[in-house]
Computed example of a mutant assay.
Amino acid sequence: MTWTIPNILTTLRLLAAPGVAVMFLYFTRPYADWFALLLFVGAAVTDWFDGYLARLWKQQTRLGTMLDPIADKAMVVIALMVIVGYSSYSAWLVLPATMILFREVFVSGLREFLGDVAGTLKVTKLAKLKTTAQMIAIAVLFGQGVFEHYLGMSTFGMDQEMFDSIMTGAEADELGLGWKYAGMIWSGRIGLILLWIAAALTLVTGWDYFRKALPHLKD
């Protein structure tokens, strides 16, 4: 095994995947949301850098080729598990997350079955776009958790009537409830839209991979 800088970055991204979930075990919210968001974004950035540096320095290795898709899938799967686990289990969130998780498991099983042949089925530009869409959607949804809990901290002990008065402008918004509420709502909506787009791309790329693998599955 060759431990080049790109391979080290890929390994760090792989180790960061369970770290996203661990943040919610050792920190209270919204600090857990902040740390998970920063860790996830940092790891997602390495996804671009390790591939770019490997091509620039001509350091593509079998280790990196093996670890890169595993790290990507681990990041997405664990982050989605955390987001769904700490959500209200809305069908609008659970359904695209389920579609993404199903595709990742299916394709991973297909790759394992194909063995050495799987290496001939190259990653397409659409598949890379799928991964990018997934990571942006997840980062935005983690951001929603930050807004949501800062809003909850600001409204602690406040009754509904006072909250409504502040939101309608009848009372001064000294705690910034307006922008926190807007941030929570819009990050949630944008995150869901992006997640559905990612889920659609996930199914398209999953079918494309299956279609290309069909000749190798015939007896």
Rank of each mutant, 00 (worst) to 15 (best):
L114K: 10
M135R: 04
M135W: 01
K130Q: 01
A97F: 05
V123M: 05
P96F: 06
I136D: 02
K122I: 14
V94N: 10
I100V: 15
I138P: 00
F102L: 12
L126R: 10
G115K: 01
W92T: 09
S108N: 14
L110T: 13
S108G: 13
A97C: 08
T132M: 14
T120S: 13
A137L: 02
T98A: 15
E112G: 07
A118D: 11
K130H: 04
A137F: 02
G119D: 09
K128W: 00
L93E: 01
G115M: 04
R103E: 11
L129F: 14
T131N: 01
A97V: 08
V105I: 15
A133T: 09
M99R: 06
G109T: 08
P96E: 05
I136Q: 02
M135H: 02
V94T: 12
A133W: 03
G119V: 07
A133D: 02
T120V: 01
L110M: 15
M135P: 01
V117A: 12
K122N: 12
S108I: 14
T124W: 05
L95V: 15
K128D: 02
V105L: 13
W92I: 11
V117L: 11
Q134T: 05
L93G: 00
G109W: 10
T132F: 15
L114H: 11
K130M: 05
F102T: 12
G119K: 10
T124H: 05
E112P: 10
S108M: 15
R111I: 04
G115T: 10
K128L: 03
G115N: 07
T131W: 00
P96R: 06
I138E: 00
P96L: 07
E104I: 05
K125W: 15
K128C: 03
R103Y: 08
F102G: 09
E112F: 12
K128N: 06
A97I: 08
I136P: 02
S108K: 09
V107A: 03
V107K: 00
E112D: 13
V105A: 15
A97N: 07
E104R: 03
V105P: 07
L101P: 00
A118W: 05
I100W: 07
V94F: 07
A137R: 01
D116C: 01
R111A: 05
A137D: 01
E112M: 10
Q134P: 03
L110S: 12
V105C: 12
K122H: 14
A127S: 10
T132S: 12
F102H: 06
S108R: 10
K130F: 03
L110Y: 13
F106D: 04
I138N: 03
L101S: 11
A127L: 04
V123D: 09
S108P: 10
I100F: 12
I138H: 01
K128V: 09
I136W: 11
L101K: 06
L110V: 13
R103Q: 12
I136L: 14
L114N: 06
L93V: 05
A133Q: 00
V117C: 03
V117S: 10
T132E: 08
F106Y: 09
F113H: 13
A118Q: 06
F102V: 15
F106H: 05
A133I: 00
E112N: 10
L93P: 02
T132D: 06
R111F: 06
A97S: 13
K128E: 08
L121C: 06
W92E: 10
T131P: 00
L110R: 13
L93A: 02
G115A: 08
T120G: 11
T131E: 00
M99Q: 07
E104K: 00
L129R: 14
